[in-house]
Computed example of a mutant assay.
Amino acid sequence: MTSLSSFVDFSKESLYLSLLSITFNPTAWNIVAQNEYHNKTITRMFGGNARNGCYFLAVMIFSFGLLRDHLYQRALADQPRARLLPEPYDTIVPAALFLVGQTFVLTSTYALGITGTFLGDYFGILMDHRVEGFPFNVLRDPMYVGSTMCFAAGALWYERPAGLLITAYVYIVYLIALRYEGPFTDMIYSNRATQQKSEPKKEL
């Protein structure tokens, strides 16, 4: 049986930098966002303007996302190559995965808007109602699923078995992040609903 080390070069620093960036992003943004909800740290940095604070966080999340993708590409380039799929599926499957994955990511962003996508609810910028159209009528967390699909697409396109290992790690990290992000977001909207019920109705 061929050992895992023949497909994955564990001596490459780029592999660990990629895993570190994948871990850092959702972990850091969850911590920052929960701190923002409780302490309004970023909002106070922007003179009490929550929307500008959210835009600042959006730029940070997007920038670190680009860095994560760059480190992933570097990690793939440093890893051994091996045929993973027969022709013509070696191009069809990764291309389809990337197309579907990007569709989920981009349509999620469009449906939620900038503040909805980049944790605006932690800044007190809440949506009027839950988004139920595509892609949220297909998946509960289409952005995370789409991102994972794009990682898998890269691994298959460049024929790097290590990329599939990294993709599995991405999936695990996202699952852990959702265990914290999902309930916390639900709590924010539950608190708003409770507050709205307790407020006296204005007479017309």
Rank of each mutant, 00 (worst) to 15 (best):
G113H: 01
I188R: 00
P135W: 02
D141R: 12
Y16V: 06
P94E: 07
E203L: 15
L4I: 10
Y37M: 09
T167F: 01
P135I: 01
T43Q: 01
L126F: 08
F118I: 02
G53I: 04
N49E: 08
L165K: 03
L164M: 07
R179V: 14
T27K: 12
T103W: 04
N137Y: 10
V59S: 11
D9Q: 13
S14Q: 15
S147I: 05
W29K: 05
G133F: 02
G65V: 08
R83K: 12
L119S: 04
R51G: 06
W157H: 08
L71W: 00
F123M: 04
P200M: 12
D121N: 08
I176E: 03
S6T: 14
P88N: 07
Y72C: 06
A153V: 00
I125H: 08
P80F: 06
N39D: 10
P200Q: 12
Q102V: 09
S63Y: 04
Q73G: 10
L66S: 05
S14F: 07
I172W: 11
V59I: 14
F98E: 12
L97F: 01
G182F: 12
R192H: 03
T23C: 13
F123H: 03
S147F: 07
L20H: 02
W157R: 04
V170F: 11
F46R: 02
A168P: 08
L175C: 15
